[in-house]
Design a protein around this nucleic acid. Structure first.
Lengths: 229, 229
DNA sequence: CAGTGGTCTAGACCACTTG
DNA sequence: AAGTGGTCTAGACCACTGA
């Protein structure tokens, strides 16, 4: 049982919340601390995280209550929804190892975002994401060669799961409205002249250095881009 | 001096961070606690908030460091950027007090989102937001009559500042790609057949009950929709 | 080895709400 | 008056890092 106590208490409170009506009060912090034989500070820490995630809300001097499901914080649609569908399959469309940046048209923002030096090598992968055999989005992924562990890129799709890096460090997202590029329309099974959203994701390490850059072309019929803050 | 000590310490650490190079270590928690005569838990709370906001990052067993500016968390582009530009001006285009929901076409999602009963009154305001006299976006705002304080709606734009409610409760945002509606093209000074992003914001109270619904049509030339998580 | 962040305790006082 | 959440203290032990 190496799991910290506050996380164990968090799980237990989660169990209590489940199935409760919104606005139901939970026991007071002092009660919970005696129930689970923990100090009040430890209980507060558990509750604080649940409030942050939108499962509970506090009323000062009154109590702590179960929040409505609609208030749950889902800060990244990509992270949340792809975690829910573990059946996401990828089809690699292009795999251009070690492009020189000059050989690559339309790569200005890649150079800029990844701090790539002139002549520096980088990797470009384009892949189609499918859920239940429906095309969800196309991802253009860029990463500097120096950031790729040389040993094995066998489990490529796992390595390219950028959401896990984003949770460690941070991710900057830009939402760009555009027409579906002709070359991608058929792959995503949508008509040309359809307006779509391209999301440009820059994944940063904890210290802020750029790690990976991903342009994502979402199929508006299949993927609703939404989140709750 | 009624400001909590941990917020005062947070401000002081903020001052220290300012102008420091990324990856510079800050003093250890124990040092800071002696400097400001606070317990370590109080110092930790200040640091935790700065880590949450992306100003600092921690390395376990090593220390706490200044993060790169790029890692700053800006979870809502609307909140952040409108706070930065306090010169936002609004021009009311329509002000339809107390519409009956049936009289209003295309209002299905309004009914659904705001939990409006058939025949229940609600308010609809359409306004154009300008920054430096440039049209930034058009907002269609819906709110149930019962949620409007009857006394004064004199300071309408202040009342409709939905970001402040979102900080209290929560906000669900959906990003919808679309062509600019013909009726709004001229007002936003963009060409017809331009793809844009409409953001549908549902503002919820702390307990999750719907409060306000805002559809926002962004001018892609003027407003980059971006955030960092 | 000393130092760091991560966790935890057993108290305390405060302002505030509610019966 | 009793109970609540918000803040704060002065300790403690742990696993881990780096010189």
């Amino acid at each position: 049982m190496d799991k910290p106590k506050y996380l164990q208490i968090k799980d237990k409170i989660m169990g209590f919340i489940e199935g409760q009506q919104p606005n139901t009060p939970i026991p007071s912090e002092r009660e919970i601390s005696t129930i689970y034989d923990a100090s009040r500070m430890t209980v507060r820490r558990a509750i604080e995280e649940l409030v942050e995630d939108g499962y509970l809300y506090r009323e000062k001097n009154v109590g702590t209550f179960v929040a409505d499901e609609k208030a749950r914080k889902k800060i990244n649609p990509v992270i949340i929804e792809e975690a829910a569908h573990d059946d996401t399959k990828y089809k690699i469309l292009y795999f251009n190892m070690y492009f020189d940046v000059k050989d690559f048209d339309n790569g200005d923002d890649v150079i800029e975002n990844l701090d790539i030096e002139p002549g520096e090598l980088f990797l470009r992968v384009v892949r189609l994401a499918l859920q239940n055999d429906s095309p969800i989005c196309i991802e253009e992924i860029y990463i500097a060669r120096k950031n790729v562990p040389s040993d094995d890129i066998k489990e490529l799709n796992d390595f390219l799961d950028y959401n896990k890096y984003a949770q460690e460090g941070s991710m900057n997202q830009i939402f760009v409205p555009m027409m579906i590029p002709t070359k991608y329309a058929k792959l995503l099974k949508i008509k040309i002249d359809t307006p779509i959203i391209r999301v440009d994701n820059l994944i940063l390490r904890k210290n802020g250095s750029p790690f990976m850059f991903v342009k994502t072309y979402y199929n508006p019929d299949k993927k609703k881009i939404a989140f709750t803050i």
